[in-house]
Nucleic acid binder design. Structure first.
Length: 672
DNA sequence: GTTCCGTTTTTTTTT
DNA sequence: AAAACGGAAC
């Protein structure tokens, strides 16, 4: 027998083995929480390689860069090979690759910018101003969601939304003029391209023969279309997922893709992984008790050979400060008494805003922690400024970047100047940068003399540094440093924060770090194409959780439930198990049917824990500087009571109160 | 025309 | 508590 095959037989259970060794046909792996999914995927690809499938015929798609990186590392470890030709990428990053290859066919230029939410928000405001469309009292993010939904066919125009139609059309037109694409475009444009140009599609179909999609329950309709276009001919598509862990429907994830897959690939094999290798029986039973309440799920019975383990601990602190203090104290105790390392513990939160009280407690207690997520390094103002300079130099039609830096640092250009330039740009149907150049060359410039002179200097600056960035290989970090010097960004920071030099210094330090990481990137030996475009594309797709995996562990993890998907920890604290937070109030307002997704979120949180689970629910919490009374999450009552133990507070009075509280929830649930 | 200062609003999750 | 906006001061 094949040597590696034997190894697999030893390492995997029968279902896992079958999943890892089936690759010449469509395959759906339904992988329950903790069932060794990543293990199976990595072994599967390693197995394919061992059977002589060339690396460059395999395409594996994941959702985060982190997941992609981890998968690559683990396969590399397993096979001891370099894997230069193996494509493991996020959907979006792969979309960029396709576009870089052929976006010209769609009438864009290949130095396109990628607009994230912040850019889109700015563009929306800009467009509204032009159209004299008042955005007073409007929820801008909701408008962007509407636009995205319209674009991806998730929603149709209605009588109610019709008033945004013109805004939408103009918004799309602008993106086009700026030679910019958004996140939806990264999937939609490749689809458009493949449909319009079958020769290009055929090229990709020839190149890639084996496909794997991780976290399949979180793919959108378009992502499915995309992978289906690529794989429908060779038909070796493997999807891996768990409908119970689908928590991204708000971003377009559509569980119906599971059904679509069954229809499109009727010859598929389906394998369900039900043995859980992660959690104690207690934790698993709690999770099962919760998820059972969802309708419309693929029936699974997760089981584990583990012993029952320790009870789940439930605590009702009076407020979020006590909640944080309790968690900090527990962490310290567990570390001291049970020798559990900090990095083996994790605090999970529903919303980023909940991190505040926890962080304060950790800082006060001197507990080392690491918050994954939150504001990304690249979302910091000072970094965005520099990135905007770079983006403008890469793509001079990128108006949003230009507007950001035109007067940063202050150059004396204000609203009026922009208005004039904007008029020229609109008349000529061109970008602002072209408008500036035009205005400078025009005989009868509509701009005052002083402004013209300053604009000239600005254009020269952009030109000079653009040349340097594009021409000199592996010298971008130095060039950027020179730019920072030239525009005297330090002075700018000082004048922006006149009373807070510490803050200014911190921001300047961030900038230095940014330069350093750019330098590291462009000088890395594996980086064969260290161009400005590639760098910008890379950082636009860099999410919050995969910045510099600083290996300095020994720190407690703090993250949102969404960010914790796919991870596991010996001890998990779930914060804010309150009605209105989990399930989240706004999610339910949007659509009461969202409870099920909120329940899945709760389920994902519970199943991250290996040994010990703490749940806390505050009686009061200050939300937007107001103190609000909170009631426990209804999900708490879905956990079998025998598995839960009340945390014993210091005063016996409170203990009795807490017990009353618990029976209160039970009563409440009984009514439903 | 630009900058500064005081007022208002905000917090669901993210590629 | 911080950012974003709008009106008054320079």
């Amino acid at each position: 027998m094949h040597e590696f095959e034997q190894h697999l037989r030893q390492e995997l259970n029968p279902q896992q083995y079958k999943a890892a060794t089936t690759f010449e046909r469509p395959l759906m792996i339904v992988a329950g929480a903790g069932s060794g999914k990543t293990r199976v995927i990595t072994y599967r690809i390693a197995y394919m390689l061992s059977r002589g499938i060339p690396q460059n015929q395999i395409l594996a798609l994941t959702f985060t860069n982190k997941a992609a990186r981890e998968m690559r590392n683990r396969i590399a470890e397993l096979t001891g090979r370099k894997l230069r030709q193996l494509t493991i990428s996020t959907f979006h990053a792969f979309g960029v690759r396709v576009l870089r290859d052929a976006i010209v066919e769609l009438g864009y230029r290949d130095n396109f910018s990628i607009y994230d939410t912040v850019d889109q928000l700015a563009l929306l405001k800009e467009t509204a101003r032009e159209l004299h469309f008042s955005l007073d009292g409007e929820d801008l993010k909701a408008i962007l969601t509407l636009f995205s939904d319209i674009r991806t066919g998730r929603r149709e125009w209605t009588d109610e939304s019709d008033r945004y139609r013109e805004l939408f059309n103009e918004f799309r037109k602008h993106l086009r003029v700026y030679n910019a694409v958004d996140f939806d475009d990264l999937i939609l444009l490749p689809i458009e391209l493949f449909r319009a140009r079958t020769d290009i599609l055929d090229r990709y179909r020839d190149r890639f023969r084996y496909f794997l999609v991780d976290e399949f329950q979180d793919t959108s309709k378009d992502q499915y279309t995309f992978i289906h276009l690529l794989s429908s001919e060779s038909r070796n598509l493997c999807v891996v997922g768990d409908d119970d862990q689908s928590i991204y429907s708000w971003r377009g994830a559509d569980y119906r893709n599971l059904l679509q897959f069954e229809r499109d690939y009727p010859e598929q094999t389906q394998i369900t992984l039900e043995q859980n290798y992660r959690s104690t029986t207690t934790i698993l039973e709690a999770a099962n008790g919760v998820i059972r309440n969802n309708t419309n799920r693929k029936e699974k019975k997760l089981w584990t050979g583990e012993e029952s383990g320790r009870p789940i601990e439930l605590f009702y602190p009076d407020n979020e400060r006590l909640e944080a203090a309790f968690i900090a104290e527990r962490i310290r105790t567990l570390a001291l008494r049970e020798r559990i390392r900090y990095e083996e513990m994790c605090v999970l939160i529903r919303t980023n805003s909940l991190s505040r009280s926890i962080e304060e407690a950790f800082l006060a207690e001197n507990l080392p922690y690491r918050m994954t997520g939150g504001t990304s390094f690249f979302d910091r103002r000072e970094i965005r400024d520099l990135v905007s300079y770079m983006r403008l130099m890469a793509n001079q039609d990128d108006d949003m970047s230009l507007l950001r830096i035109l007067n940063t640092p202050r150059r004396g250009f204000g609203r009026k100047t922009v208005e004039v330039l904007d008029r020229i740009a609109r008349a000529g149907r061109c970008s602002l940068y072209s408008a500036i150049v035009q205005a400078l060359h025009a005989a009868d410039s509509p701009l005052p003399r002083r402004v013209t002179v300053d604009l000239e200097a600005f254009v020269e600056l952009i030109h000079e540094f653009r040349d340097r960035l594009l021409k000199n290989r592996r010298d971008m970090a130095n060039t950027l440093a020179a730019l920072i010097e030239r525009i005297d960004y330090w002075q700018h920071l000082v004048s922006e924060h006149p009373t807070n030099e510490k803050l200014a210094r911190w921001k300047y330090r961030n900038i230095e770090l940014f330069c350093e990481s750019l330098g590291k990137w462009e000088r890395h030996p594996d980086n064969l194409e260290p161009t400005l475009f590639n760098y910008l594309n890379r950082i636009s797709l860099q999410s919050r959780d995969d910045e510099e995996d600083s290996e300095d562990s020994g720190r407690v993890n703090l993250m949102t439930i969404h960010a914790a998907k796919g991870l596991e920890f010996r001890v998990v604290f779930l914060v804010g198990c309150e009605d209105g937070i989990l399930p989240h109030k706004r999610a339910l307002e949007e659509d009461p049917a969202n409870v099920e997704e909120e329940r899945r979120l709760f389920y994902v949180a519970l199943t991250r824990a290996m040994e010990k689970l703490y749940l806390t629910s505050c009686r009061e919490r200050s939300i937007m500087r107001e103190i609000v009374a909170c009631s426990p999450s209804p999900f708490l009552g879905e956990i079998p009571h025998s598995l839960v133990e009340m945390h014993e507070p210091e005063e016996p009075v409170e203990q009795a109160e807490a017990r009353d509280y618990f029976s209160l929830i039970r009563a409440k649930l009984g009514q439903q």
